[in-house]
C-alpha cells in the first residue's frame, strides 16, 4: 500500500495502482473516453489529464491519470488551472474532429467550449481513434478489427477494409464505443456490423432473436456451458422459472397440473 494526496485529500491505494484508480478511490473523478477496466490503460483520449508533483520536487507536470503509476507522496490536482487548460485544449481538438458527436459536445460544453477554435471537419465520422473497440475485440480473442493507415489517414478498419472474416458479431465494439460511432443494426433476425450480415439465433420458445450463431458457438466453447443455456431468451427463461417455482409451491396438486399444462 502507498499514500498520496488527491486535491489535498490523503488516500491509500495498493501498489501498482494507476493514478486514475487512486483519484477515484479518493472520491474524485476525471473524464475519460478511452478507459475500460477490461483492457490495459491506453492514454489515447487525453481527457484524464491531471497535474502531479513528485515527492521532493517543486515542479509539477501534467500527465494522463489512466496510465500514470500512483507513487508514494505524489500530490495530484484534478481541477487546477493547468489541468482545465489542457483538457479544454484536448476537447477543442476533439470538437474540431467530430463536431457532430453528442458526447464530445457535452464534454466540451462542460469545459465552457461551444464551438471549436479550429476549423471543424465536417466530412469525418465520430471516431476519436481511441482504439477501445480494437482493444476490446482483441481482449475477447477475435482481433477482427484493427488500426489501419498512418497520421491523418489512421482509422479503425477490418483487414484489407473488407468484411472482417474473424468477426463473430458480438457487438461489443459498438456498445463500448464512447462516441457511438460503430453501426450495429438488428433487423428481421439479422445483425449487420462491419459490412457483414450475421444470422441471429432465435429463442426456441418465442422466436425473439438475441445473439449471433457465431458468438453463441464461441461462448459455448469458451464457457464450457451446455449449448442449451443459449437456446432460450431471458424473457422465456424467466417464464420457465416462474412456472417451476409455482409448480413447487404448496398450492396443491390441481395448481401444479395447471402450471404444467400452460
Amino acid at each position: 500500500m502507498l499514500n498520496l494526496d488527491v486535491n489535498g485529500r490523503r488516500v491509500t491505494v495498493p501498489k501498482a495502482s494507476t493514478l486514475l484508480s487512486a483519484i477515484r478511490a479518493a472520491g474524485f473523478d476525471v473524464p475519460t473516453l478511452c478507459h475500460h477496466e477490461a483492457v490495459e490503460p491506453y492514454g489515447a483520449c487525453r481527457l484524464c489529464v491531471v497535474e502531479v508533483r513528485e515527492r521532493g520536487r517543486s515542479k509539477t507536470r501534467v500527465v494522463t491519470a489512466c496510465n500514470y503509476p500512483a507513487r508514494a507522496g505524489l500530490q495530484v490536482e484534478t481541477e487546477s488551472e493547468a489541468v482545465l487548460e489542457t483538457r479544454r485544449e484536448v476537447l477543442d481538438l476533439l470538437l474540431a474532429r467530430c463536431p457532430g458527436s453528442e458526447v464530445i459536445r457535452g464534454l466540451a460544453a462542460e469545459a465552457g467550449l461551444h464551438r471549436s477554435s479550429f476549423p471543424p471537419d465536417r466530412n469525418r465520422d465520430d471516431c476519436i481513434l481511441c482504439g477501445l473497440c480494437v482493444r476490446i475485440c482483441e481482449k475477447l480473442g477475435f482481433s477482427a478489427i484493427g488500426m489501419a493507415g498512418r497520421g491523418a489517414h489512421r482509422e479503425v478498419a477490418a483487414p484489407l477494409k473488407e468484411a472482417p472474416p474473424d468477426c463473430v458479431g458480438c457487438g461489443s465494439c459498438a456498445r463500448v464505443c464512447p462516441t457511438d460511432n460503430i453501426s450495429l443494426v438488428d433487423r428481421d433476425g439479422m445483425r449487420s456490423i462491419w459490412g457483414r450480415d450475421f444470422e441471429l439465433v432465435r429463442c426456441a420458445s418465442c422466436g425473439r432473436a438475441y445473439i449471433t450463431r457465431e458468438y453463441q458457438a464461441s461462448r459455448v466453447e469458451g464457457s464450457g456451458l451446455p449449448a442449451e443455456h443459449f437456446e432460450l431468451c431471458d424473457e422465456c427463461s424467466r417464464a420457465r422459472l416462474a412456472k417451476t417455482m409455482f409448480a413447487h409451491m404448496a398450492l396443491g396438486p390441481d395448481a401444479r397440473e395447471e402450471a404444467s399444462d400452460d
Binding site: 481482449k139 475477447l140 456498445r175 438475441y210 453463441q216 417464464a239 420457465r240 422459472l241
Partner: peptide
C-alpha cells in the same frame, strides 16, 4: 469491466 457482449443474458437459465 463489462464489455457489453451480452453473452450472460441468454446464458442465465433463469433469465435474471
Amino acid at each position: 469491466r463489462c464489455v457489453r457482449c451480452n453473452a450472460c443474458v441468454p446464458a442465465c437459465p433463469f433469465g435474471n
